[in-house]
């Protein structure tokens, strides 16, 4: 067990960087799949006669009562996300949840973004991957503080992991918190982390129809960055078609064509980020004189 925070030993780990020991978030362990042993639900070899069985079932049914629950499966995550959102608003931080397939160029885009914002807008980063801290190390090489969350078998970040990870990150007022989710266009769509916006990154080396294949993610995002546009001359990728598919799924989505490598579109992306960060700064409660 982690002696810093009292977390358990299963599930997701959050790299405390500064402390040099693995942080293990307080998450429930997951048992291996086992055959269900539902009394009365399965008839297998060695069972008693039908009559005896139905007598048992009738006796059990007499003790059954119905309990109303009426709760959303995401209720707990959503409650943690609300707490994160409140903390980000109080800190005056513009938090973004970056989602995409693996290999869309999220980390390179993030590195180039941090380099361009250096000296103007402070950036802190949470990196989510199943394994390795390679991405957090790439971010730290730019000078920005970064925390790596390894989700283990998990396919997405959840609000509690992000809440735990932000505890060890300096969040500067008027700054950005970039949360790079696990590369996956399916699962992260459902999990609110408390971000201001989801930003989906689609690269032109993927198919134009990704927005139709993974509509939940493109519907959940407010901004789409169409990345690697410097490669368009070498590819059969129909930009207008890809953008039309994204707008079919989400008519309100904003789209910026970018290339982290050539710099194309990066000014527009920087403007969008700076505007969001200054709006969060302006909306945050006045700094208290202590």
């Amino acid at each position: 067990m982690c002696t810093t925070c009292g977390c358990g030993s299963d599930g997701a780990t959050i790299d405390h960087h500064h402390a040099g020991h693995p942080y293990v978030a307080r998450r429930r362990g997951i048992a291996a799949p086992a055959a269900a042993a539902a009394p009365g639900a399965e008839t297998g070899p060695g069972r008693t006669a039908d009559a005896a069985e139905s007598a048992v079932a009738a006796s059990a049914a007499a003790h059954l009562r119905q309990v109303s629950i009426e709760q959303d499966l995401l209720a707990r995550n959503d409650a943690e996300a609300v707490a994160n959102r409140r903390a980000f608003a109080e800190a005056g931080v513009f938090a973004l949840n970056l989602v995409s397939s693996p290999g869309s160029g999220k980390t390179t885009l993030l590195v180039k973004t941090i380099e361009r914002l250096a000296g103007r807008v402070p950036v802190a980063v949470i990196e989510g991957d199943q394994q390795t801290s390679n991405d957090a190390e790439r971010i730290r090489a730019t000078g920005a503080p970064a925390t790596q969350i390894n989700t283990g078998k998990g396919c997405h970040l959840d609000a509690r992991m992000v809440g735990d990870a932000t505890a060890s990150l300096p969040l500067a007022r008027g700054g950005l918190l970039m949360i790079e989710n696990v590369g996956n266009l399916v699962c992260p769509a459902a999990f609110d982390l408390g971000e201001a916006h989801k930003v989906v990154i689609l690269s032109v080396t993927e198919g134009e129809d990704k927005p139709l294949k993974y509509p939940d993610m493109f519907r959940a995002a407010d901004l789409m960055l169409l990345n690697k546009c410097d490669l368009l001359p070498y590819l059969q990728f129909d930009v207008e078609q890809a953008e039309a598919y994204a707008r079919r799924v989400n008519p309100d989505i904003r789209i910026i064509r970018v290339s982290a490598t050539s710099g194309l579109g990066m000014d527009e992306w920087m403007e969008w980020l700076a505007a969001g960060a200054s709006a969060c700064d302006a909306a945050a409660p006045a700094l208290e004189q202590v």
């Binding site: 059990a60 003790h63 059954l64 009562r65 119905q66 309990v67 109303s68 629950i69 009426e70 709760q71 959303d72 499966l73």
Partner: peptide, 8 residues
């Protein structure tokens, strides 16, 4: 949503 349960 979890709607309801039969419990004993």
């Amino acid at each position: 949503r979890v709607k309801d349960l039969d419990v004993e």
